[in-house]
Amino acid sequence: MITTNLIEKTALTLMDKAAIEIPSDYHNALKKASSTEDGELATFVLKAMLDNYEVAKEDRCAMCGDTGVPRWFVKMGNNASVEGGMVALEAALRRATANATHNVPLRPNRVHPLWRTDHNNNVGIGAPEIEYGFEPEGDWVDLITVHKGGLFGTDYRMLFPSDGIQGIKRFYLDSLMAFGKRGLSCQPAIIGIGLGGSKDICMNLGKRASTLRVVGSSNPDPRIAELEEEFKELGNSIGMGAMGFVGKHMVIACNIEVGYCHTGGMPMSVHAFCLSSRRAVARLFPDGRVEYRTDPDWFTPYQRRETVEWESGSNTNQTHDANSHRSDSTHAVEKLP
């Protein structure tokens, strides 16, 4: 049994870590980008950002004054149990969100869309969002908080199979161009692309691709992994850098996640996770142990499963995925280069 007290205490620490500590995968990638940037203004901007991460940690101060919209992803092993049930867990996450807003402090960003009512604690109708995932094994609970910025860098479009890969590329470039100018999307960023699903799931896939996958990860489908690399290079070949100044670094990583969609469509979403890529993760065990990490490790073979049944402990599933895509050529939208 994982206690409510442990959940709330850990959640409070995660809120603090997410706001203050830049995750190492993104930090290292940005340092690398900074060392090869040659635009004068873009270089100045990246150096200032790297300084900012250090100052945030030294002063225990939020990296960015816009501390985003805090949300939660909860992943549970199939054998996990939570004191007081899921209603108690949700209450603990709402309390931690409100208390951290005051303690860190975070900006109270959440308001009613029409009446602009502000509870000054980032809690309200539907806020923070709490989403769930499950894994076939384990008695642990993973708490993941993401504080993504909310205004720019994200778009959705219903494409169709006839749009093909070139249509996907166009919408990807359109999104980077539209929000990259003047640096509205706070690039260079981890770009997430959602392909497929229904409209809402498509947005979800893209958001999770940008926020729940680390730099250096790739999609297990080798052809999608190739697209991820190609799209990263394509984004960085625009000639636009930080703040929309002339530069070479717009995309730190491009992560693509897919879901089965309506046979007539190919919905697509694009999401940019900003220069303050705020995410923090902890695994809670029934004996009270807590392990902190920065990789949400959300997209497991189980999350990406496509079969009716799930055979426990089956690692061959991933290979099976890739093979089935390969043999499924009649369904491919366009032959890849």
Binding site: A48, N52, D66, C186, L275
Partner: peptide
């Protein structure tokens, strides 16, 4: 600058 040099500006 950045955007998001919030901690630097805080100083």
């Amino acid at each position: 600058v950045g955007y998001g040099t919030g901690a630097l500006l805080g100083r």
